[in-house]
């Protein structure tokens, strides 16, 4: 078994249950701390696999450029402050270079852009949620490139954010705000986030609708022109 695979299994089957067990031992409010630790532990295998692979310069730089582009993309669409394009670009990266690259791009883009705003309790959750969006897009479309049409990608992006990425971000709020975890209370918090998640989703859908075709063509061309096969 490869060392990185072993570590991933270790993280998921030993580290996370251990954290959850320790959480129940803590007196006081452990929900936020433990859930965030679990989120970080879920990201560790991705980071570790990337490090263990000793990435080549090209791979590393392209990942960097895509993360920076995702973070910057909203400047281009500054005419509408509600348009969040970051997730759309992350998804496109996942489609072009595979789920793992999508995850790393998302996590790095979220972390880096928080240096320009502010790090907060939400940082690990944002890293994981954005990374997950890129991962899922890569998982579905990377090996089925014929499916990656703008009119398929746009609803995919919208619903992924509305149903998965957005609620993941809201989970951070659930663990910090609620004092009593009943189904009704939790649903109330998620319901309060729907409006925001919908605008976020529309932003990503528009990005995918308008930008995905030219951007994917460019990334494909880069792969054939310079022989970068797989990230």
């Amino acid at each position: 078994m490869r060392k990185s695979t072993l570590f991933s299994l270790l993280a998921i089957f030993v580290l996370i249950p251990l954290t959850l067990f320790l959480g129940t031992q803590v007196k006081g409010r452990w929900y936020y701390l433990i859930s965030t630790l679990v989120i970080v532990e879920l990201m560790l295998p991705f980071f570790f696999r990337f490090e263990a692979r000793r990435p080549q310069a090209r791979e590393l730089v392209i990942l960097t450029v895509m993360a920076a582009l995702a973070a910057v993309s909203r400047v281009v669409f500054a005419f509408s402050p509600y348009l969040k394009t970051i997730t759309g670009i992350i998804m496109i990266t996942g489609i072009a270079f595979g789920p793992e690259a999508g995850f790393l791009t998302g996590a790095v883009a979220a972390f880096a852009s928080n240096f320009f705003f502010s790090q907060g309790p939400w940082t690990p959750w944002q890293m994981f949620a954005y990374g997950f969006g890129g991962f899922l897009a890569g998982l579905i479309f990377h090996n089925h490139r014929s499916w990656a049409k703008p009119w398929i990608l746009a609803p995919f992006g919208f619903f992924t954010i509305l149903l998965l990425v957005g609620p993941l971000l809201d989970s951070c709020t659930v663990f910090t705000v609620l004092s009593k975890f009943t189904a009704k209370n939790v649903l109330a918090v998620y319901a309060a986030g729907i409006g925001y998640n919908a605008t976020h989703g529309i932003g990503a859908a528009l990005t995918l609708l308008f930008v995905s075709r030219p951007l994917l063509q460019k990334l494909d061309r880069l792969q054939t022109k310079y022989g970068i096969l797989e990230l």
Binding site: Q56, A57, R58, L60, V61, I62, T64, V65, A68, L69, V72, S73, V76, F77, F79, T85, F210, V211, P214, L215, K218, L219, L222, Y226
Partner: peptide, 24 residues
């Protein structure tokens, strides 16, 4: 906006190849 982003991507990706080759 999409055209600008597309042009920016082109510029950034070409630059990334140069950076990577230089790093290597």
């Amino acid at each position: 906006g999409a055209s600008v982003l597309s042009a920016l991507t082109d510029w950034a990706l070409e630059g990334s190849i140069i950076t990577a080759d230089s790093m290597r």
